[in-house]
Amino acid sequence: MQRIFLFLYRIRAFLLFIALEAIAVFLIVSNNSQQGSAVFNSANQITGNILNTQANVLDYFSLASVNKALVDKNANLLAELEKFKKPADSVYIELDSVLSASFQFKGAKIINNSIHHSQNYLTINRGSNHGIKEGMGVFNEEGVVGRVRAVTKNFASVISLLHTELLVSSKVKSSEVFGSTKWDAKDPKRAKMLYVPRHVNIAVGDEIVTSGYNAVFPEGISIGKVIDVSPGKETNYLDITLELSTDFTRVSYVYLVENNREEELEELYKSSDILDE
């Protein structure tokens, strides 16, 4: 303790100088508003920087707990989202009472697909054990995909719309003019609409949908849009080219539709010698 007093005694002149300077500064700041404002602003700036640095340091050390809270929050949100997420193999379609009584819908995943042949097929991971039957129509959220050709217990093969022997009963959505859609084996993104008379007005951009005139597809499922119309050569029908609404290079999940009255309709067509598309 004595050494401390001796040290302070030795620097007594310096301490007196600091004390007088402090008093002088105090007097200047107290009696001069301009100098007082400058000192006050400088002090605030220094204090603000110190507090900001302190906050950053505290935030850094609290990141672990913040991250954990965010992870827990995200987990809860994902759990809530899963309740509203549509299962991949499920079908949600708004149907009126008549359509609900006539058709049943199922979901499936495509496990094999071809687009480079003149007669292309798809394979789905559902079969007779899941209620899949021959002749069921196949489509996705974009439009028509094809028709079930053969079924085993757990799988089924589907005739793709990109098949030269598949005809789909079609119509122009805006005018109700009907015909048939068939692929010409040229471009996997395009097809032809057949049997539309030359006097009918068809415009580029018209949407073509299923007509509902056969027992395979309900009415109104998209097929494509008209991209070219011209008089057919040596025929009384128009030459109509469609851009297909379904992108067959990316199809993944599909819906299958069963007409509950298909057998009755087929018996009627058979007895009347009518060819059903």
Rank of each mutant, 00 (worst) to 15 (best):
A203F: 04
V71P: 02
K171P: 02
L162I: 04
K109W: 04
Q35D: 04
V66N: 08
K233C: 07
V172R: 05
K171M: 13
F103L: 07
V229N: 11
Y121S: 03
P87R: 13
N76M: 13
E264Q: 11
E277M: 11
L70H: 07
N74A: 04
G224F: 03
E176I: 03
A24Q: 06
S100I: 00
R3G: 11
D59K: 15
G205S: 11
S97C: 00
K182N: 15
R12W: 07
G135R: 01
R3Q: 14
R190N: 09
G232S: 06
L166A: 06
L275S: 13
F103E: 07
V138E: 09
G36C: 02
V209S: 02
F26E: 13
D247N: 15
D89P: 04
V216I: 15
R190Q: 15
R3V: 10
F248V: 03
Y237V: 10
K85Q: 06
G48T: 12
V25A: 09
L194G: 05
F139T: 08
Y9K: 13
N260R: 14
W183N: 02
L166G: 03
A79G: 08
L162Y: 07
I111M: 05
I23Y: 00
I18Q: 13
I223E: 13
L81H: 03
S90L: 04
A13I: 03
I93A: 09
A79E: 05
F103G: 02
K73N: 09
F40P: 01
V251Q: 10
M193E: 04
N125P: 08
